[in-house]
Design a protein around this nucleic acid. Sequence first.
DNA 1: AAAGTTATCAACCGCACCTGT
DNA 2: TACAGGTGCGGTTGATAACTT
Length: 267
Amino acid sequence: MGKGRAPCCDKTKVKRGPWSPEEDLKLISFIQKFGHENWRSLPKQSGLLRCGKSCRLRWINYLRPDVKRGNFTAEEEETIIKLHQNYGNKWSRIASQLPGRTDNEIKNVWHTRLRKRLVQSSATSPCSSNSVSCGKEDKSQAEGCLNTKTSQDFTTPVSSGGSYNSNQEDDPKIGLLFKYSAFNEIIQEVDKPDLEIPFDSDPDIWSFLDSSNALQQSGANEFRAEEESDEDEVKKWFKHMESELELEEADNEHHKPGTQESSSSCS
DNA sequence: AAAGTTATCAACCGCACCTGT
DNA sequence: TACAGGTGCGGTTGATAACTT
């Protein structure tokens, strides 16, 4: 090897930016089948043109079945504030005390809401000694705390879908795929006693269930009934979805780990 | 209705730590 | 013991939704 540390992947050859539903499905399916013992080799094996770190992040922060989505409760926010006083910016430490919440999510909530709230509440005692920083980022804070949009602070309508913010809604097929994949996730995990099933976290799923009996019959129920079955069923499911979505990817082989000679350079 | 501003969140980056050789 | 690779963590950024003027 040359001097210094090799980069984790060739950034010119991996896809970046928001994940597509197809990529999510690939990742979910792969992990359900084979787990994620090696993130670095996972993209190549699963046929994803992504960096292993990106796959890990996507799984941990979004696709993992026990991720609780939706607004933070007042109790959770209070917990975060208290834990932050104890641990500081140890987000993973804080996240470990909040089941279903990720460090990234907690970090975001802290920066976007809780810190401002604390600044506001301590406005009478400027730059008091609590954990709220009065540091460099106070440029926006100074304005923000004077002009906080309280109407948004605790009632922000989260688009519970995730990162397909725009096209998920625009493209019914994509939205459907995503919702079904989320549903499928839950179904797949129902028998795992340790996992908290986020039934209350994504209302879209329930409206989806209500409104898409046809899909349930052709896909979900069938899949559910045979959830214990093996990868043949998963392949069947992929084929079904691909034809349903007219995706018909040329990379059917991608679903077979080890057979993919992907150009992914995350290795 | 349009333009500008702010808030939110997913994702990326780089560093540190851990582990195996 | 030193080194290299894999993983996790925290900071930061960019896109876009939501809101205001």
